[in-house]
Amino acid sequence: MSVLLQTSKVSMHFGGVRAVDLVDMSINSGAIHGLIGPNGAGKTTLFNIISGLYIPTTGNVIFEGKDITDKKPHEVTKLGIARTFQNILLFDQMSALENVMVGHHSRTDSTILGTIFHTPKMKKQEVLCKDYALSMLDFVGLSDFKNNNAGSLPYGQKRVLEIARALASKPKIIMLDEPCAGMNPSETDYLIEIIYKIRDFGITVLMVEHNMRVAMGVCDIITVLDHGKKIAEDVPDIIQNDQQVIEAYLGKENLE
């Protein structure tokens, strides 16, 4: 399997705090890669670095062999990295369909002038964009809610809509930030199904997950962060029994 995305010696310092500290991580193409760790371990910070929101203090992010460390978020998305957010960031006043159409933004190349003059090319692009967005809504099972305002959807559907929006950018890798947070068991099962479908679709998945049942059950490989450092990386069975990981989660003193 080839390496799709790689971080090499990535660090992020906020003042004196090392939110991410020299993390090396390789994500293989086609994998479902888990990223776990206690609160404040630096998981979301790492996501922000990869997606271009932060520029790391040191280190590089390499995607398909190219250095993308200094790229802006929209450039990163265009290259094929999409993401969702831990505390859902939807465009609340827009419909579900429009939200997903925004996700497709980087895949249409109509210009502002084309829009003003209403060129045939632009009209065609709009139709294609809408069709693609509809197919993504269908993919996650939200077709019936396409005209509802994103802000008015129930919590679980918001999470799923975020995934559809990210998928609409035709990513090679999708980064899911706690997709199952706040979901009940049946919603969680539905989400797991979607994650498998995404993988079968040929898209690599990198996910932060707090729900251990999900992380251990779904992921092919898991990276564990603690206090910004990578402390383990292996298949779920081994991670589950790793002494350092257990210590990180339960605290050393609890074990003694």
Partner: peptide
Amino acid sequence: RLIYSKTGRAFQAIRTAPIAAASMGIN
């Protein structure tokens, strides 16, 4: 025409959630 197009959606996305807009590929 601007509002009901890719451009208008981008404008509104920027107003509501600029970070999400950037992560959806909007400059």
